[in-house]
Structures are given as structure tokens and as C-alpha cells.
Amino acid sequence: MILLKNLSKTYHSKNGKIDALQDVSLEVKKGEVFGVIGYSGAGKSTLIRCVNLLETPDQGEVLINDTNLMKLSQTKLRQERQNIGMIFQGFNLLKTATVYDNIAIPLKLSGIPKNEVDERVKKYLAVVGLEDKQQAYPEQLSGGQKQRVAIARALSHEPEILLSDEATSALDPETTEAILDLLLKINQEFGITILLITHEMHVIQKICDQVAVMENGQIVEQGNVIDLYSNPKHPTTKKFIDSMFTNTIPAPVINDLSAKGPIVKLSFVGHSTGKPALANVVKKFNVYTNILAGNIVQLKNEPYGRMIVHIEGEEEETKKAIASLKDEGVQVEEVSINEL
């Protein structure tokens, strides 16, 4: 569906050059929700704007359904762009046009017949839940409503691909949840492939199937969301995932950990989050467990939990307890007091 091969992009200014993309490659399969996450300056905005050639890479290939956009004429490129919808952080609505006209005008400019324009506007306003706002102006709408209009406008061209450029970062948490639910609904009901960029791990957690982590113009790690949550490799990935969990333990608690036994980080994936694994090892072995921190988050398709636990007991018994936890599908990593 979307295949980016070895993209590089450098910006030049009087202060020097900025390597926004450095040999970046990724593949988004049909029907996926693919997230790209990174901190400010990582290169993710440049990357997503290269997909529809709003930014032209210095090197590399951009293929959509096996068509290399880099080799198309401007006329052919405009035609291909009709298949790629895009929503922005800033909404990009015409302030002097009604909600209806904000969606209708681009359709008319594309040569869509008048009766079909009317059908599409009403259809996609219904999809985003704004049927009653057709004659409202952007200044009369909330931020979430403006973003819904922008989404309806993108959908009205009936694309196969939807690009989301930090679409929720200007919204409050409750509105963000509603917009993410809407994007998930669009993906599931219309089969539209979504590529989004974000700096918020919650967005990845909520709706994404696959994720790529960017830093300094490069993809430093990528894979399916559950794998990156349960086994992150790169320090930046670990930092993003750690932000979803409260691992800070008060110093007095740490100072009281004088009893024998290891401190372990437990990761629970899917069905293992519902098992009483800690209770079972206490019953089976001569150990005590002291939960120092923990949380469970819901990923798109399954829950993921993490705990920091002190397993108190003699070495042989704690080893047996850890082996038992692993047998239950729990990932176990021993940590030192200095890491807490």
C-alpha cells in the first residue's frame, strides 16, 4: 500500500543544514493503522509530508500501490493525491465558509458533479457526527468539531489512505479520545489505511497496529505495538513506553528493601494480565511479594501490564518463583535498586 524506500531530505539555511530524513524506509500494509512517534525535531512531519509529495525527498522512492510518485507528471500526481486524504493539527478550514462549503468546495474543484457533492458532504458529516452543523462557521465550533470537519473533508474524496499530521495534539484529553475513536471507526468500517505521526504514546497505544520510532531523522526501531511495548530495544522507545507507567518509587520505600530477594520488573501481555500469577507463586513457594509500582494499559487489541515487585525469600525459592512466573507467560527482568 505505502512503501517508502531510503528517503533522505536535507534543509539548508544560513545557520547550516538540517538532515530531516536520513535513509528512512518503512512499509504500511493495506488496512493498517501505522503510527510514527518521535520527539520534536525527529523528522516525522517531513516524513509524512513526503508520502503525498508535499515535501519532495532529495533521494529515495515513494510508492503507493506500486506506483512511484516521484516519477509522475504534475497532472498524474494530482490524480494520485485524490487517493490520499490528509488531516492536520491546525484543521486548515476556510474561516469565511460554512462547514458544508469547507467540504463541498474542494469536491467541486475536483470536478465532482453537484448532486454527488451534496451526497458526499451529507454522508461524511453524518460519519463524523456533525449533520446539524452544515451551516455553522468554523469560529462557532469547538476544536474537536473543527477536526471532525477536517476529517469529513478528507474522507469526502473517498481515499484509500488517510494521513494524520499530529491531528490530536491541539486537543484536550477527552476530545482526543473521541477523535481517536473516530479514526478507529473509519479504519474498521471503511478499510482505510491510516498513517499518523504523533509525539503522544497514548495515540499509538489506542489505535495503532504498527509503530516506528524516529530520532534525528532516522527510524531507530519499528514493529508491531505489542512487541515494542513488551520488548523495547532503543533507549528512545523505552523512554516513550516508560512514560505510560509510574515507576518512580519513593526513597523511603527503597531504603526499606533490606530483606533478601530480587527486585523484578514484570510485563504481562494479553491473557496473562488476568491471571493471579503473584498470588500463585506465594502459595507454591516460600516467598513474599511486595508490589512497588504497577499499571495496566489497554492497547488496541489486548491489554499490557507492568509491575515492579520485590520477591522476598531465599535464593532457591525466589529462583523457582521467577521460573513459575515465566511459565505463566509473564516476562521477568531483574532490576537493581539504582535503576528505580
Rank of each mutant, 00 (worst) to 15 (best):
G143M: 01
L155T: 08
Q140C: 03
Q135F: 08
T175I: 15
E158K: 14
E160C: 01
A152W: 00
D172C: 14
R153P: 00
P159G: 11
I179H: 10
D181V: 03
G143T: 06
A152T: 06
L141F: 08
A152M: 03
P173Q: 15
E166I: 10
R153T: 04
L184S: 15
E160A: 07
G144L: 13
A178V: 02
S142T: 12
L155Y: 14
A167C: 11
A154Q: 05
E139Y: 12
G143W: 02
E177P: 00
T168W: 11
P138N: 08
A170T: 07
Q145I: 10
H157K: 15
D132N: 15
L141R: 03
L184R: 15
R148Y: 11
D132A: 11
A170Y: 11
R153L: 02
A154R: 01
I179K: 11
Q135C: 01
K133N: 10
A170H: 10
A170N: 06
A152G: 09
Q145N: 03
L182K: 10
D165W: 03
E139P: 00
T176Q: 14
Q147W: 00
D172H: 13
Q147R: 01
P138G: 11
L182E: 04
L184G: 13
P159I: 09
A150Y: 00
A150L: 06
L183P: 06
P138Q: 07
Q135W: 05
A167P: 14
S156Y: 06
L180Y: 09
L182G: 07
I179A: 08
A150K: 00
S156D: 02
H157Q: 07
S142H: 08
E177S: 14
A152P: 11
K133G: 04
A136N: 10
D165S: 09
G143L: 02
A154T: 06
A152S: 06
R148K: 15
K146M: 13
D181F: 06
Q135G: 05
Q147T: 00
R148H: 09
Q145L: 04
D181W: 03
S164A: 15
P138D: 09
H157T: 12
R148E: 05
H157C: 06
E158N: 13
G144E: 11
L171Q: 04
A152I: 04
A154V: 06
